[in-house]
Amino acid sequence: ALEDLFTTLNRHIQASAFDNVVKFTDQILAIAPDDEDALRCKVVALIKNDHVEDALSAIKSSRKQLDDFHFFKAYCLYRQNKLDEALESLKRQARNDETMLLECQILYRLGKMDACIDIYQKLQNSKVDNMEINSVAALVMAGRSSE
């Protein structure tokens, strides 16, 4: 039953056994092709396993498009260094801490340091671990390290 598959799936998620997560999400999706939890688990597992090309394929081939797929797609494109496409995809996603962090990383790679720093400043109250490492990097690259 679906419940049993999700129980096993959860065990593999807790163990960070990403190949098995993909295997069991595929089993769930064979029964319930539009299951949002299974779709999301599959894409996350592929990303966590650094299989960004497969994650993009999973997003493209899914009949159901989830709210956060634009973010996942943008992240995969960023990993492939397709930075303009990644920004385009991010524009389709509601802005939140995650999307803003990714936007910063894309802008940094594009050399748009001032825009990057502006967003890090907006994120300052959101308590992202180690964010100062990236914001300092952007300040250094912008020649604004005295800030």
Partner: peptide, 21 residues
């Protein structure tokens, strides 16, 4: 060049599937 971390990767999380089990 200074070190940059992939903080976006850290933000990507599995959904809570407790209620599906």
């Amino acid at each position: 060049n200074p070190i940059v971390l992939d903080l976006a990767y850290n933000m990507i999380e599995f959904p809570d599937i407790e209620n599906r089990m």
